[in-house]
Simulated assay, not measured.
Amino acid sequence: MKQSKIIVVTSGKGGVGKTTTTANIGVSLAQKGFKVCVIDADIGLKNLDLVLGLENRIVYTIIDIVNGNKKVKDTLVKHKTVKNLNLLASSQVANKNMVEPEDMVKIVDELTKMFDYILIDSPAGIERGFSNSIKAAQHAIVVTTPDLTAISDADRVIGLLENEGFNDNNISLIVNRIKPKMVEKKEMLSPDDIKEALAINLIGIIPDSEEIIISTNEGKPIALDSSKSVAINFNNIALRISGEDVPIEEDIKNNNVDTEGFFSFLKKMIGRR
């Protein structure tokens, strides 16, 4: 099997859509035939199983592996409908200090024997959970929303990633919950503001969407429903991750947004790619 690609999905603050993004990218990659494992690295505050609708199927967690009670392959939970997608769940009764960065490296090493892509859903912030999540990763995707606190926190995380050896070649940015009309009216941080603060490769833009909120609450990632326009965005991101050259403009086609305003937004953003 070809070498696995290990990606950590992270953010500076909570609530920016990181876990939802991880789940939907995982679904999109698996739908393309890749073998995918998503890891919930948020020890004590698990959410990835809920977003995937797998909370009732969790028997063993990452803590069982760390404690030596179970092997990695015995803890994996297969998705109900996406046969190539597996979850390694977190424990809600454990705490972040029960897992060391070296534990994550060993676990991921085992997973590379079984999967093409491993997505690690990092807890928000910069403490132990963050260190655990990035230790084994080859590539980092930073998720942010276009508000000042999220941008500031994302900038700090990018600095920490660079201190750990990441660089422009293996750090990418997803801007979530963009509202083009607000950008045009200068009611939301502009692309220039984001570029100045972060200046990393843009791998995807996700418009603000009630459909994502509904699908998340139902435990059915929106990427499962190709009839939903936002599913295209996650599909495009998955294509870029897998090496295909998909123009960033494709992220807004078929979305019910102010097209003219959004293309103006994109022209400014693309200047940094």
Rank of each mutant, 00 (worst) to 15 (best):
T81I: 15
I134N: 00
T19P: 07
A199K: 14
A154E: 03
K195Q: 06
S152C: 01
F265N: 03
T10D: 10
Q3W: 06
S172K: 01
D147L: 07
E110L: 00
L161N: 07
K195D: 08
D42Y: 01
K70Y: 10
P207N: 11
I43S: 07
D225W: 08
K185I: 06
E162I: 05
E211I: 13
F234D: 03
F262I: 04
S28N: 03
V230W: 06
I203G: 00
R240E: 10
E110Y: 07
E218T: 03
E210D: 15
R57C: 06
S209M: 11
N132K: 08
S11K: 08
P207D: 03
T259I: 15
A124R: 01
Y117E: 06
V8Q: 07
M182T: 04
S91H: 02
D40E: 06
K96N: 11
I107M: 11
K185P: 01
F34N: 05
N24Q: 01
V16H: 10
E260H: 12
K35W: 08
N97V: 13
F265R: 09
M104S: 06
A223E: 07
K73E: 14
G129R: 05
I120D: 08
N254E: 13
V16F: 01
K253L: 15
N236D: 10
V157C: 05
I58N: 05
Y117A: 08
N97Y: 15
M182I: 03
R156G: 05
I213F: 07
L266K: 09
S242T: 09
S172V: 00
E184H: 04
V27R: 08
P123I: 02
T145C: 05
N236T: 10
V230T: 11
V93Q: 13
A136F: 03
S190D: 06
I222C: 09
A199R: 09
I151G: 01
K18E: 04
V59I: 14
S215R: 15
